[in-house]
Computed example of a mutant assay.
Amino acid sequence: MGGSTSGDLYESTKGEVVTEKGVLRYHEAGEGPPLLLLHGSGIGVSGWRNYRGNLEVFAEHFHCYILEFPGFGISDPVGGQPMMTAASSVVRFMKALNIESAAIIGNSMGGIVGAHVAMTHPHLVTKLVTIGGVGPNIFSQNPSEGTRLLQEFADGPSREKLVRWLNCMVYDPAVITEERIDERWEASSDPASHESLSAMYGSKAIEERQHSSRNSDTPPYWSMLHKVKCPTLLTWGRDDRQCPPDMPMLPMRYIPNAELHIFPNCGHWVMIEAQEAFERITTEFLLR
């Protein structure tokens, strides 16, 4: 989940690549080692809305690719659980563009996707930066406040429900401008985008996921994070109400080469609310 305003734009090139499971679309900018930027889930989300405000800084050092995951209204949908199709789309994308390995920045769901790729295809990921998302709720309620608001919207969309969720994403309500609300509301009307949202956050989907977790012999993904061998930077907003800051405690311990940075006075959208500090710390980590 993330966003930016149109005033933050940095010029980039739009691209698309044909894979065996449809067309993947992306934005591209900069020169240097490859850096993939993976977006989160949420209402009216896209990779461009997540990262357009950060692209200028990262493109000074890296060849940046903002990938649009299948099923969010931009790249071709492929069916299936959005998290799993997102992970496979990263592998397909890198193969199609002959990217042998890359650093990854993943926002929320994008961070989990990046971790999945690092666990299952370790040769593809040189470094991993996550923005919230990764790990289990230890002390905080599950579902979180943000997830419950997403569930309400998925079950019955309205502009008022969108505004409540957007305000839950940030520490400073001034970040939620009318422009941002209008943009998200318009994007959320796309049928494919809402289908993905319902598949992840609708009441039926959440109930099935909880039932499956209670009755499955498959361990949760976070219990296998020790398989992430690449250097990893976990970034978090101290005031995150979507993914509360107790969640990175286990990933910080399980991932062998992990470090954690928590930003004060910041909600779920670290790359927006703590933009300058996030870009500085992330750039230092990636160039280290």
Rank of each mutant, 00 (worst) to 15 (best):
E11P: 13
A59N: 00
A59T: 02
G40R: 10
W48T: 13
G22M: 09
F62P: 06
S46L: 12
H63G: 02
R49N: 14
L36I: 00
R52P: 01
G40V: 11
K14H: 12
R49Y: 15
H39T: 06
V18C: 05
N54E: 15
S41N: 12
N50S: 08
N54A: 10
K14V: 07
A29L: 09
H63T: 01
I43P: 11
G30T: 06
H61E: 10
G30L: 03
S12A: 06
P34N: 01
R25P: 07
G32K: 00
Y51G: 06
P34F: 00
T13M: 09
W48V: 14
T19E: 07
L36E: 02
S46N: 14
E11H: 12
K14R: 11
G47Y: 10
G47L: 08
E60C: 04
G47D: 10
G44W: 10
V23S: 12
P34G: 00
H61W: 09
S46P: 07
S12C: 03
V18Y: 02
E31R: 06
Y26N: 06
L38A: 02
G15M: 05
N50P: 04
L55N: 08
R52E: 04
T13H: 08
L24W: 06
T13S: 12
V18I: 13
K14F: 14
G22K: 04
E28P: 00
E60T: 04
S46Y: 08
R25N: 07
L36H: 03
S46C: 13
T19S: 04
H61V: 05
E11I: 11
N54M: 11
L36F: 00
S41A: 15
E28W: 03
I43L: 07
G30A: 07
G32Y: 02
E31N: 12
P34K: 00
L35G: 04
N50F: 05
G32H: 02
N54T: 08
K14L: 08
Y51R: 08
G15S: 01
E60V: 00
K21Y: 14
H63V: 00
R49Q: 13
W48D: 15
Y51T: 08
L55I: 11
T19F: 02
L37N: 04
L36M: 04
Y26G: 01
L36Y: 01
G22S: 09
E11C: 12
E16V: 03
P33G: 09
L37K: 06
H39Q: 12
G44F: 09
V23N: 13
L24A: 07
G53N: 09
A59E: 02
G32R: 04
H61F: 13
L38S: 06
E20V: 11
H63W: 03
G22W: 12
K21V: 10
G42K: 09
P33I: 09
S12D: 02
F58C: 00
G15H: 04
E56L: 07
L38H: 11
V45W: 08
L55P: 03
L38M: 10
E16W: 03
